[in-house]
Nucleic acid binder design. Structure first.
Lengths: 343, 343
DNA sequence: TTGTATGCGTTATCAC
DNA sequence: GTGATAACGCATACAA
């Protein structure tokens, strides 16, 4: 309701508005004495500069918008944490939006951010080609966008992610080492049949001379957890009855990999004896899982941290020079071996 | 960089700024024809109303600020999800800040929000009496604050949380039922020795005629996971060597309870045979844990949802009438039994 | 060293 | 049915 303004300070102190403004901004034009008087009065009365007004005037809001699929996701929330950490070192603050894996909502989220006047956007796209022209337009004409996690390949901008091929290779090589080549690969279906993780997987198989069997790949709908469970358990049940039983499972995401453990436990399938399990996961309590989970870990904090830093960099650069700064950074994953692949 | 304004539309269409504004706001003063012309032009040119300006003019930002300890926390992120869901049904959007369990940062976060001109604040306080006078001042004079999860008891406002006593009672009664009365209670130390969860626990013990043994209570520093592990495992190790071995563990938070499972697994202590485990937890994949975890589940989504709704309600009410709306809502927890307490 | 005037994008009041 | 103008809070170019 209240919140004192510069104008009121001016009236109270018998000075002009502009003098107050200058005093508060420590301008050389104002005498030390006046400054002191103003600053003291301001502090005493809890003066809070109105950022809306400042932004409106200055043409920049010092706010970064972020769009992720869902806050409520281990992987995402770790990245957000990294972004927040990076933001502490800057003057920028953060507004988070959720796309809920929905292309339209992704666009709505960005629109909301633009109306708020964000200076730049950090986006983990819903899919590899969602809103392509729209994003390009925004990135060119409104404010810079930096992509992280998933890539919208055609968008010309800075991208931060992980080296999937390498991560997948790490996992597969380990499975080969423990002689588990009949691998069921479980992934999400958001990205169509030809997403980069699937492609990397196939390529890795080829490199390692493991034939790709379509029956050993399951794409499930990540939008609904019950559905995930259902799809996975059904698939496993069928495969275990078939002549070519899998002896390993490789999960493409956190949720998939961890849920798979639960399903196997309920089906009383022994891990790793009957089926070894490994997958991308950033759950920070892997030892509490049944059994402790071998994972391909992604440097989430670093992804978030870097993404913000790079965006800030772009913002500090004149628009026409930004293109030169565009880069794609693929961070290395690390493999952590635990009981789920330990014979 | 660009982003067309009302002024530019006016110039392009040979109309006045005010007419454009009215047309865009569907005012009855403007002819349908003109409206159509304006709206079409606006859409065509991706006109985005500048919310900063609107807020500055209107004196309200339609933004709600949220302060939580950490986004990167299962419990918190579920609540945030609930808040976001609730916000979809309103015109408000959300800005999230992290206090990182730090009283000063909590205050800084709120200051940042106030500078941004938020209309109201949703706060999960760092502790039961952090920033009391400050919060009271803000709540009285600047914008309403609604508390959730943890309570700052002295602040007169709406509070949304869970019925801890009842939840703890559920857990203890179950432990009694399976004849596990030698219970190690593990909690956080943020709130001092006399926080409400500890008090509720002691009271429940008394009601159930279980003597309270100070040796069977561990308060650990939730700020650092390695430290948590160290404190818990040391404590368990010592107790298992002593004459009065515990046969159950009750964890006060998500992190504590799940980490305890991991520690027990590594110590090769059998759950539930040697030690049963139950605790507050909202991890949504309890079946993947070792063993599947019995939990006291808190209705996180609902907490968030309600908190936002109640705040919106306050905002829709004249300030001097708000006091009448203040209420404290304690939602019921539910107990979910799984193997970790199943003999 | 201080004050005046102007504008950021929008809406509301009042006049035409 | 439309337009001119002031105001929201702040910063800045310019005047004094």
């Amino acid at each position: 309701m209240s919140n004192i303004t510069i104008k009121e300070i001016a009236k109270a102190l018998g000075l002009s508005v502009s003098s107050i403004s200058k005093a508060l901004n420590d301008s050389y034009e104002i005498s030390d004495e006046t400054k002191k008087r103003v600053v003291e009065y301001a502090k005493l009365n809890n003066y809070r500069p109105n950022r809306l007004a400042k932004s409106l005037k200055g043409g920049q809001s010092n706010t970064i918008g972020i769009v992720v699929c869902s806050i409520n996701n281990i992987f995402v929330s770790q990245i957000l944490d990294g972004i927040q950490k990076a933001s502490y070192e800057t003057d920028y603050d953060i507004v988070i939006m959720q796309s809920n894996e929905d292309v339209n909502r992704e666009k709505e989220s960005i629109e909301a951010l633009l109306k708020k006047g964000v200076d730049g956007i950090l986006l983990a796209p819903v899919s590899e080609n969602s809103n392509t022209e729209y994003l390009a337009d925004v990135n060119e004409n409104i404010c810079p966008i930096v992509l992280f996690d998933r890539f919208n390949l055609s968008l010309k901008t800075t991208k931060i992610g992980v080296n999937e091929s390498k991560g997948i290779m790490q996992a597969l090589q380990h499975l080969i080492r423990i002689d588990r080549k009949k691998i069921l690969f479980i992934t999400g279906d958001q990205f169509g049949e030809e997403n980069s993780r699937i492609n990397s997987y196939k390529k890795a198989l080829k490199t390692l001379d493991i034939p790709f069997n379509p029956k050993f790949m399951l794409s499930c709908n990540l939008g609904n957890n019950d559905l995930i469970d259902q799809q996975i358990s059904e698939s496993i049940k069928n495969l275990m009855k078939s002549s070519i039983k899998p002896n390993a499972i490789f999960g493409a995401t956190d949720v998939i990999t961890i849920r798979t453990l639960g399903i196997l436990a309920q089906m009383k399938i022994k891990v790793p004896d009957e089926i070894a399990v490994i997958g991308f996961s950033n759950f920070d309590m892997p030892n509490s899982l049944n059994p402790s989970l071998s994972t391909i870990r992604q440097p989430t904090q670093e992804i978030g941290f870097l993404a913000l830093k790079k965006l800030i960099n772009l913002l500090a650069t004149q628009q026409h020079k930004r293109r030169a700064l565009h880069e794609t950074i693929l961070l290395d994953t690390s493999i952590e071996l635990r009981k789920s692949t330990n014979l």
